[in-house]
Structures are given as structure tokens and as C-alpha cells.
Design a protein around this nucleic acid. Structure first.
Length: 609
DNA sequence: GCAAAATGTCATGGT
DNA sequence: ACACCATGACATTTT
């Protein structure tokens, strides 16, 4: 009988910054023309680069460069490739960011196709190109849902990530299949009129496929150009770090070199910023702290960019919720903190976190009027965001924000309705920006900023809270509100959303405190159960879809492998046939050849005998 | 009005 | 024992 030895746990540390750091270093090397071993000649210009980078990004370069081993190779590209199209692609290869304008997107697309640029999948161009070509003039009001917008969203929503990445889907690991893609928004449309102009030549967009740790320097673009860069909070981020600043992608920008000024790395910041831009509310970013003069200076200096101080990144609570490592362990605590009305009874240390949230949310709330933005721009931004969170797709299942968004958007045509399609909920960690946005949205739609108590949770403003407010209630039509029916019967002293959002502990405390009637108690427990189950069902469905998606990817991979193997087999067959023919030919020659040599050999053999 | 998709709810089993 | 979660099945709503 053998006794098992002590179990050995194997841990893996995966650096979230490493790949980006490498890429950044390569870009620096390229700019300094250090270690560049290839010169690419396009039209009349030459570009120094690293063959390994080119080869790893482009099929074309791969085939051309891997066959040569000599240093300082010069590759002259054919006329099909232009500087206009190649330069952004080269930059993309080194920065994972693609700068493009309406004018050059086609050219870039063409060159990318020609060069076989990976990671710039069809999804990017298939959406962008037609959008820009068709939608250039479709500057429509964004308020209210219009059909085309809806159908566009629908198509995006139904478009599986695998569909989006037909090109790279075979090569990319699932988590790569777009989660890195980011679209960021920049400001600069301060003066945009209500009818936003179509994306014009002056507006440059930026696809960012880099990891989160973008340097602010990389965002300095042409003057007056709009950038769309949506930093993501991708689920692919490693979860092994311990320090919050490291774990949380939103906080880890401290590792970047430009400490003074940071791009708002958190997706929250960018999306929010984007939204703010949509609303011409761009003065300052989401902040946990009141902006200092310095901040303001930065903001003004970097007009057109979203720069953000480190300290103004997403509040820790949100980040913790987001961070994979923390999501499970701490979500409860955070949940309780954020949702319990009597926060002090749960944990004092975290009050600050909560306050930060409060401040964030209140500051997020748009003040007044909305500014419409070009539908094309919105759709592009939406598409980018959507496409780049393939793994985060059912977000809105987080009970509160979700419902809130749904309700508010459905109810009053909120400008944020398009964010419904940024689906994060099923992911283990939800993206704070949606919470923020939903919160913002709700606040906006609600027409007031929530009180501290109400904002205990980012979304605990219950549309069906019998005390507080209720459009639903007043409408008498609460079909959309989950757990709607009994609301009119049961008067609760707290927002209904809290029931499902708070931790069990907080929930029990609240029940104790509120001394509910049996009727209320039953209702509350029922609501909680159903809400939890609703979320669970959403997660379950999301998992199913994910599973299908991954399996489809596997099928694609296997098919391509099979094709490759078949090709190899055919090739081998052909070469085998050749060898056979050569061999038989040789044999025939040998037998039929009365050459002197063979005669001599025969004679020699006779003599020996 | 119908069909399909999406979503909510319940029941059940596992942890 | 209880709560929570996952999931299949069914109902309802939305598209």
C-alpha cells in the first residue's frame, strides 16, 4: 500500500506587461534603427524594421523573409503596396495600434490583405470599410433608437467572434481572438455641432490591439484628430499577480514609464470618456478625487486626448471586482460594501472605496444635454468595443446595471442603450466601466443624482422601489423589470435591486434591521432567489455560447491542420512518385546500358574466377 | 400572425 | 440545514 507523497502545487506567473513591453522595446529599437535587419522599400520610401516582427505579423513577409538568412535584406514591395497603406500597418506591427482615417482605411485594408497582416482581421475591415464608405454621410441623431442602428447592433451582437476573425481565428488562441482589440475614444470634439459631421478626413481613428499598458506617448497623434481607442479590461488578463496595482489592469499603469501622465487605461475611463465625448461633456475624466490644477492643466494641454492621472483611475472596488484574482474572494465583501445601506456595519476600511465609487458615479453623471454623434462613429466604437470583448458577452446580467440599462434605455431611449451590447456579465469579472455607465445612465435617465444611500451599490436605484421612484410603477407596465409584479403590493424600505446585489451577510443584516413583514420577507427572498437564478442562467447560456465558439475555433483549427496535412501528403506522394520514376529509370539504364565500365567490370569478374 | 431568438423562471442536483 | 450555483426544461417576451 503506497502512501501518496505531499502534493506539489505548480503555480504559473504570467506577466501581463511582458508582451507589451517587448513590443514597445521593439518599437523603440525600430525608431532608433537598432538591430533592424531589413529594409522595406515602398514606392519611394524605405522603412527599416526587424524581419522577425514583420514575419510574425505578415504572411507576405514571412514567406519572403524566412527564406533569406543574409542580414540587411532589402525587400522591395510591389506597386500594390503604397506608403499610405503600408506605414500604418508597419506601425501597427510594432504598436498593435492602427491609425487610420476614412480616406486611407481602404488603402490600409488593401495593403493588409496583400501583405497578409494578421490580427487585423476581416472583422475590422469588414465592418469599418463599408461603414466608412457608406456611412460617411450618415450623420444622424443618435437619440432614440433608429432601425439601422439597431440592426447594426443586432448584426454585431449575433456575429460570433469566430465570424469576426475568420482569418486569424485559426491561429489565435481564443483569448486572443479580439480581446486585445481596443477602440479608444478621444476628445476633441468639443466643438462638434449637434449634428455631428461624418467621419472626415480630419478624424483619425485608432485600433488598439495592444494590451492594457499603453503609454500615454503612444496616444499623441496628429493635431485635432479624433482617436477612438477603447482600452479593454480583457478577460485574458492574467490573474496571478497579487498586488492590486499589478493585478488590476486598470491600476497597473504604474508600471509604465510615463508616470506623470497616464492614459486612462481602464476601459472604464475610455468608454466613459467616449461617452462623455458623445455628450460633449468632456471637461474632465472620471476621477476618484477632485481634479487638481495640475490635472486640469494636463487635460487642457492634451486636448483631444484622454489622459488621466494615476490616482484617477477606476476606484479600487471596481477594479477588484474586475480583477480575476479578486473577483471571487472579494466580490462578496465589495458587494456588501457597495450595496449595504449601512456600510459601516460591514467594514469600515472599505468605506473609502465606497466613497470613491460614489464620487465616481456622481461625477460621471452627465450634467445636461446630450450631444449626438455620428452614428458611424458610434457604431465603429461600439463595434470595436464589442468585438474586442468576445469573451464578455452577457454582461448585462449583472443584476443591477443590467436591468438598469435595459430599463432605462428601453424606457427613455437613453443614449447609452448601445452599451447594452457590451456584454460583460458572464465573465467572472465584470467591467467597471459598464457599471459606471449604467450608473451614469440611470442617473441621467432618472433625472437626478442618487443619494449616498441609494448609491450604496452602483445601481441600487430601484426602478421598482416603491418608495423612491418609479417610472415602472407609475406606468403600471413593468414587464421589463424583473420581479415586477409584486412591487405594487409590497412596499419595501430599500431598493429592490439591493436584494439581489448584496451579500448574504448584508442581506441578513438588512432583514434584521428592517423587520419586514412575512409578506415582505417572502417577496424579498423570492426576488433574491429569482434574481440570482436569472444571473446564473445568463452565465450558463454565456458559457454555452463560449463553448460553442471555442469548439468552432477548434474545428477551424483542425480543419486547417487537416488541409495542411493533406497538402503535405499530396506533396509527399508527388515526390515519392518522382523518386520512383527516377529509380526505375536508373535501373533500366543500368540494365540496358552496355557501357564499357560495366563490360570491364564483367571482365574483371571473369578473370578473378 | 408566426417563427425564432432571447430571456425569465422553476426544479433538481451538486457543492 | 442552508445557501448558492449550474443546468435542463418550460414559459414568456422580444425581434
Amino acid at each position: 500500500m503506497s502512501v501518496d507523497g505531499p502534493r506539489t502545487s505548480v503555480f504559473t506567473f504570467q506577466s501581463a506587461v511582458h508582451s507589451h513591453h517587448v513590443l514597445r522595446s521593439l518599437e523603440e529599437l525600430r525608431q532608433k534603427e537598432l538591430l533592424c535587419d531589413v529594409t522595406v522599400e515602398v514606392e519611394c520610401r524605405s522603412f527599416r524594421a526587424h524581419s522577425s516582427v514583420l514575419a510574425s505579423c505578415s504572411h507576405y513577409f514571412y514567406t519572403r523573409l524566412t527564406n533569406h538568412s543574409r542580414p540587411n535584406l532589402t525587400v522591395s514591395l510591389p506597386d500594390e503596396v503604397t506608403v499610405e497603406g503600408f506605414e500604418p500597418l508597419l506601425q501597427f506591427a510594432y504598436t498593435a495600434k492602427l491609425h487610420f482615417t476614412k480616406e486611407n482605411i481602404l488603402e490600409i485594408h488593401r495593403c493588409a490583405e496583400f501583405l497578409g497582416f494578421q490580427n487585423l482581421d476581416k472583422a475590422c475591415f469588414e465592418f469599418l470599410v463599408p461603414k466608412f464608405s457608406e456611412g460617411g454621410g450618415t450623420s444622424k441623431k443618435v437619440k432614440g433608437k433608429n432601425k439601422s442602428q439597431e440592426s447594426s447592433k443586432k448584426s454585431q451582437a449575433t456575429c460570433s467572434p469566430s465570424d469576426q476573425n475568420p482569418k486569424t481565428g485559426e491561429d489565435l488562441e481564443p483569448q486572443d481572438a479580439g480581446t486585445d482589440m481596443q477602440a479608444a475614444s478621444a476628445t476633441s470634439s468639443a466643438g462638434s455641432p449637434k449634428d455631428c459631421p461624418p467621419i472626415s478626413s480630419g478624424k483619425e481613428m485608432q485600433l488598439d490591439l495592444s494590451p492594457l499598458y499603453a503609454r500615454s506617448s503612444s496616444y499623441h497623434m496628429g493635431d485635432g484628430q479624433d482617436q477612438f481607442c477603447l482600452q479593454n479590461c480583457g478577460p485574458q488578463l492574467p490573474s496571478s499577480s497579487v498586488v492590486a496595482g499589478e493585478v488590476c489592469p486598470f491600476l497597473s499603469t504604474s508600471s509604465t514609464s510615463d508616470n506623470e501622465k497616464l492614459h486612462s487605461v481602464g476601459c472604464g475611463g475610455d468608454i466613459l470618456a467616449m461617452e462623455e465625448q458623445f455628450q460633449k461633456e468632456l471637461a474632465m475624466e472620471v476621477r476618484c478625487e477632485p481634479p487638481t490644477d495640475k490635472d486640469l492643466n494636463i487635460a487642457s494641454i492634451t486636448d483631444g486626448h484622454f489622459d488621466q492621472l494615476e490616482g484617477s483611475l477606476m476606484p479600487p472596488a471596481n477594479c477588484s471586482q474586475l480583477c480575476p484574482l479578486n473577483s471571487v474572494e472579494s466580490s462578496g465583501v465589495l458587494d456588501g460594501i457597495s450595496s449595504a445601506p449601512d456600510i459601516s456595519s460591514i467594514g469600515t476600511d472599505d468605506n473609502q472605496v465606497f466613497d470613491s465609487n460614489k464620487q465616481t458615479f456622481s461625477e460621471l453623471s452627465p450634467k445636461d444635454g446630450f450631444t449626438e454623434r455620428s452614428i458611424v462613429e458610434r457604431e465603429v466604437a461600439e463595434h470595436l468595443a464589442k468585438g474586442f470583448w468576445p469573451d464578455l458577452s452577457s454582461t448585462l446580467n449583472e443584476p443591477l446595471p443590467l436591468d438598469s440599462i435595459d430599463q432605462s434605455s428601453a424606457g427613455n431611449g437613453s443614449d447609452f442603450h448601445w452599451l447594452k451590447h457590451l456584454d460583460l456579465g458572464a465573465a467572472p469579472d465584470d467591467c467597471p466601466f459598464l457599471r459606471d455607465l449604467s450608473s451614469t445612465d440611470r442617473q441621467t435617465s432618472g433625472g437626478h443624482t442618487l443619494s449616498n444611500e441609494d448609491t450604496g451599490d452602483s445601481s441600487c436605484m430601484s426602478p421598482i422601489n416603491s418608495r423612491e421612484n418609479s417610472e415602472c410603477e407609475s406606468d403600471g407596465d413593468c414587464a421589463q423589470c424583473g420581479s415586477s409584479e409584486p412591487v405594487q403590493e409590497v412596499d419595501l424600505p430599500f431598493p429592490v435591486e439591493q436584494i439581489s446585489s448584496m451579500t448574504r451577510r448584508a442581506f441578513l443584516q438588512m432583514l434584521k434591521r428592517e423587520k419586514l413583514t412575512p409578506e415582505q420577507l417572502e417577496f424579498v427572498q423570492d426576488v433574491r432567489r429569482r434574481s440570482k437564478n436569472r444571473v446564473a442562467a445568463q452565465r450558463c447560456r454565456k458559457r454555452k455560447l463560449d463553448c460553442i465558439y471555442w469548439l468552432e475555433g477548434d474545428i477551424k483549427k483542425l480543419r486547417s491542420e487537416k488541409e495542411k496535412l493533406l497538402q503535405d501528403r499530396n506533396q509527399l506522394k508527388l515526390s515519392l512518385e518522382d523518386v520512383r520514376q527516377n529509380l526505375s529509370g536508373l535501373c533500366q539504364n543500368l540494365c540496358a546500358d552496355p557501357s564499357p565500365q560495366s563490360e570491364e567490370l564483367q571482365a574483371l569478374a571473369r578473370m578473378e574466377k
